[in-house]
Amino acid sequence: PPQTPVRAAMNTIQHLMNSLAAASDKPSSTLISYFNNCTSNPTNDILERVNHLGKIFKERFAEAVGQGCAEIGFERFKVGVRLTYRVMESMLKSEEQRLSVQNFSKLLNDSAFHKSLLGCSIEVVMATYGRSAFDGISRETDLSFPWILEVFKIKPYDFYKVIESFIKAEPSLTREMIKHLESCEHRIMETLAWQSDSPIFELIRQSRDREGQVDQPEPTSC
């Protein structure tokens, strides 16, 4: 039967919460053993980063929505943390199967990877809750993508890199959520990845250097 917008929103939220019922906001024993297998153990950095970004998220959420909503923001952050650890474990298991390695030191010590994964999880949570609970919220306080990139200081190109693996690693994502993440991908590739401080320009330069210089410079009209 057709649902009212409020019922549909509540069902979406319930689906997310049900799917995370067994997920912890701390690394599982499987994740801890991946951390311990690393050449450089990332456990402390990961836990401290979650703690630090949690404080930042709570402050920015409260700034955007109202100081009385700070705890609501922090609860959403904690849901995102649970999703992050679950996806991280799933990704590492897939990589272990694919590459036959168990030492993911470089990946797990890469703050861009961790922040992007956490950012993607928070984006899923924020998109799930949407804005229906905050009527009258102004355009300046829109918490939908790419707000989370600015809050966590994530480069759009790095965020882009986790999206497909995130979708593969999390089978509970609804079709609507996958479409939302896909729209984030498109926005990054069309616009956000081409901001002046993007790593994409250096990667293009390196790729061109590896392939050898072109003989003729491109005409300026190109």
Binding site: M91, S94, E95, R98, L99, F104, K106, L107, D110, A112, F113, K161, V162, E164, S165, I167, K168, L173, R175, I178, K179, E182
Partner: peptide, 21 residues
């Protein structure tokens, strides 16, 4: 997710994307 475009090729994964290969 049957209409999501999976762009990663065979032999590509998160490790390669973050330059960890």
């Amino acid at each position: 997710c049957n209409d999501y475009h999976f762009g990663l090729e065979e032999g590509e994964g998160i490790s390669e994307l973050f330059d960890c290969d």
